[in-house]
Amino acid sequence: MNPYFDCFRTFFRIGLFTIGGGYAMIPLIEADVVERKHWVKKEEFLDLVAIAQSAPGVFAVNLSIFIGQRLLGTRGSVVCALGTILPSFLIILVIALFFSQFQHIAWVQSVFKGIRPAVVALIAVPVFKMARTARITRTTIWIPICCALLIALFGLSPIYVILAAGAGGYFYGRFIEPTDE
């Protein structure tokens, strides 16, 4: 089989069957790319996951770009990214086309009135989960709270918060808490 088509098909399937996005995709990608296709080794896959997570942008797309690059170079990375993106692009496009016609119907509005508070809760839950993985303690809890207040109350762009936090981490590590090296 054409290797480009094989890559595209694999990532298209991954994009099509992972509901919930992002991290829900990891096990599926691993099953296909590591166990079934043997495209990358297990340890290498974990490295790629770590890099894709720390890089900005859409995690699953980053991961597919890295794997495509590893397999078939630049063209491979484009093909793999397309495969990951295309299913959600097409599905959302169809929904967007029709949702504008549905959304004024009374019962659809009632359904979404019930859904909206639940969605806000589903966004609030990962705050607590991420606080745990980011090892937020009583001495560092002011950082996320200040960031959130600056964005939500004072309308500061999240981009400045990201830049300031990265710089802050660098200066803290460099001048206040020197590492052993």
């Binding site: 720390s54 806000v120 966004i123 609030a124 990962p126 705050v127 991420m130 606080a131 980011a134 090892r135 937020i136 560092t140 950082i143 996320p144 709270i145 200040c146 960031c147 959130a148 207040l149 964005i151 939500a152 999240p158 918060v161 990201i162 300031a164 936090a165 990265g166 710089a167 802050g168 981490g169 660098y170 803290y172 590590g173 460099r174 590492t179 090296e181």
Partner: peptide
Amino acid sequence: PIVEQVFTGLRPAVVGLLMAAAF
């Protein structure tokens, strides 16, 4: 170390970003 330092700063800020989205 520099990469690690930058990410030490980013991690709590990302939690803040998420908190802002919920707020």
